[in-house]
Amino acid sequence: MSDTITFTIDGVEIQGRRGQTILEAADDAGVYIPRLCAFKDLSPYGACRVCTVMANGRPQAACTQPIAEGMVVENDTEQLKKVRRDIVEMLFVEGNHFCMFCEKSGNCELQAMAYRLGIAAPKYPYLNPKREVDASHPDILVDHNRCILCARCVRASKDLDGKNVFQFIGRGPHKKVGVNAEANLSDTNADVTDKALDVCPVGALLRKRVGYAVPVGKRLYDLEPIGSDIEAKRAGQEK
């Protein structure tokens, strides 16, 4: 049996490897599918649903759905763009996201996604939830106001750091990232060198005292929209 699987995304033929998800195969082919919880070094999780595509006519999370021979995937359609905008807008109103003074601004995947999807302001009412800041750790700040429950820190702490510092607690609107300790992050073995700190897509998990060290104009998404690095691969392949 061949390891190569051929399928299409928006009518373009793509070659992937057996066992890859739609998202992985699309990344390799230089086709960007928007995502917030998926991260290259972490196992698929399917939390945010921003990567929703139509696979053989059914909505599927591209980050968890394996590719199959002859699969027809729709990605860049008006219908899916609307779905993604709605999801991202809901993420914005569900938390307290003040981009104007957030130190992650310009490096934030949520903000960059909103720009890429053309969201000027959410159409849903803000929920203005009361959330906590855990500043107890000497070198790490957790600002739950900005958390989008993507589980990247949960997965990275367990799988990359081998620590299990973070866990979800609560359900529904009460769900939040908790720490495996009696009270605060300072009671855990979290360390400033943990890989979990590198994967947060928003400004929820931060190294202290870094702040705005990178000037405007030099931040990750100041010049190119999110996903440009993946799309550049395709441009390279076409040359």
């Binding site: 104007m100 003074f101 130190e103 800041v133 500043a135 202290k208 005292r209 870094v210 702040g211 705005y212």
Partner: peptide, 14 residues
């Protein structure tokens, strides 16, 4: 109040 100090110069200028 409650915000980290390094955020303040960018917060209060608003």
């Amino acid at each position: 109040q409650g915000r980290p100090y390094w955020e303040v110069p960018v917060l209060v200028e608003r």
